[in-house]
Simulated scan of single mutants.
Amino acid sequence: PMLVAFIILWIILAKFGWPLFEGMLIKRETTIKDALEQSENARVESERVLAEYKRQLEETKAQSAQIIADAKKTGEAVKADITAKAQAEAAGMIEKAHAAIEADKKAAIAELQGSVADLSVAVASRLIGEDLNDDEHRKIIERYVNEAGSFNAN
């Protein structure tokens, strides 16, 4: 009886149970294959994304290096421009100072000439013993200047 029960059970399981069990195994195998394919696809995608991020990082580094180089160039150009303007301004100030000194020098020479002329007339008047008029003073001064040289000599 056990053998008959075993054979009946085996026939029932072979007819009804085995196809269900085999279906479950096939379904499990398909699920595992799909999971492996998805994980492989995810791995490939993550490698692609990683490569893209690395490329973007390199581009960003190159851009930042270019920005720094441009900023240095601009800074040096501004520095050169400021230096040139300062030098031009200093040269202008020096030129103005030279012009002012030259004007003061000419004014001092003119004042000195006037003083020398007045003093010469006074000395000449005392030496001659008579008071000369303006025209005579001028003639004597001009003759003296021609003989002695110019007062504008450097």
Score class of each variant (00 low, 15 high):
39 S>T: 12
98 H>N: 13
105 K>W: 07
86 A>G: 01
120 S>T: 15
96 K>Q: 09
122 A>R: 08
66 Q>R: 12
45 E>P: 00
100 A>V: 02
97 A>G: 04
126 R>V: 15
109 I>Y: 00
143 R>A: 10
58 E>F: 12
91 A>C: 01
133 N>F: 09
90 A>G: 03
90 A>T: 01
78 V>K: 03
95 E>F: 04
71 A>S: 08
61 K>R: 08
133 N>D: 14
61 K>V: 04
107 A>G: 00
33 K>T: 12
86 A>K: 02
108 A>L: 11
140 I>Y: 02
99 A>G: 09
39 S>G: 14
93 M>I: 14
107 A>Q: 02
114 G>M: 04
144 Y>K: 14
103 A>E: 05
60 T>N: 08
136 E>V: 15
115 S>G: 09
58 E>I: 03
72 K>D: 04
64 S>D: 14
110 A>P: 01
86 A>V: 03
69 A>I: 02
83 T>Y: 07
28 R>E: 12
146 N>P: 00
68 I>H: 13
94 I>Y: 13
96 K>S: 11
92 G>D: 15
72 K>A: 05
97 A>F: 11
92 G>V: 12
139 K>L: 15
63 Q>V: 13
44 V>W: 03
45 E>Q: 07
108 A>P: 01
127 L>H: 08
80 A>W: 00
140 I>W: 01
114 G>N: 01
141 I>R: 02
115 S>F: 13
30 T>W: 14
135 D>F: 09
33 K>M: 08
105 K>S: 06
138 R>I: 14
110 A>Q: 12
69 A>D: 03
114 G>H: 05
125 S>Q: 08
35 A>V: 05
139 K>V: 14
103 A>N: 03
56 Q>H: 03
42 A>G: 09
53 Y>N: 15
141 I>F: 07
116 V>D: 03
123 V>E: 04
95 E>R: 07
101 I>R: 11
102 E>P: 03
67 I>V: 15
96 K>L: 11
52 E>S: 13
121 V>P: 10
43 R>V: 15
124 A>W: 02
30 T>M: 12
29 E>T: 12
137 H>T: 09
98 H>V: 15
92 G>I: 08
79 K>G: 01
144 Y>Q: 14
62 A>T: 05
49 V>P: 05
99 A>W: 06
90 A>C: 01
47 E>V: 06
54 K>W: 06
119 L>C: 05
89 E>R: 00
69 A>N: 01
111 E>F: 11
51 A>H: 03
114 G>R: 04
55 R>Q: 11
77 A>N: 07
125 S>I: 07
83 T>L: 13
120 S>Q: 09
123 V>F: 10
141 I>G: 01
120 S>V: 06
115 S>M: 10
130 E>M: 08
57 L>S: 10
112 L>Y: 13
65 A>I: 07
139 K>H: 15
99 A>Y: 11
144 Y>G: 06
74 T>G: 09
84 A>Y: 03
92 G>K: 06
59 E>N: 04
47 E>D: 03
139 K>I: 15
120 S>A: 07
147 E>D: 08
50 L>Q: 15
148 A>F: 10
45 E>D: 06
68 I>K: 06
142 E>D: 04
131 D>A: 12
130 E>F: 08
81 D>S: 10
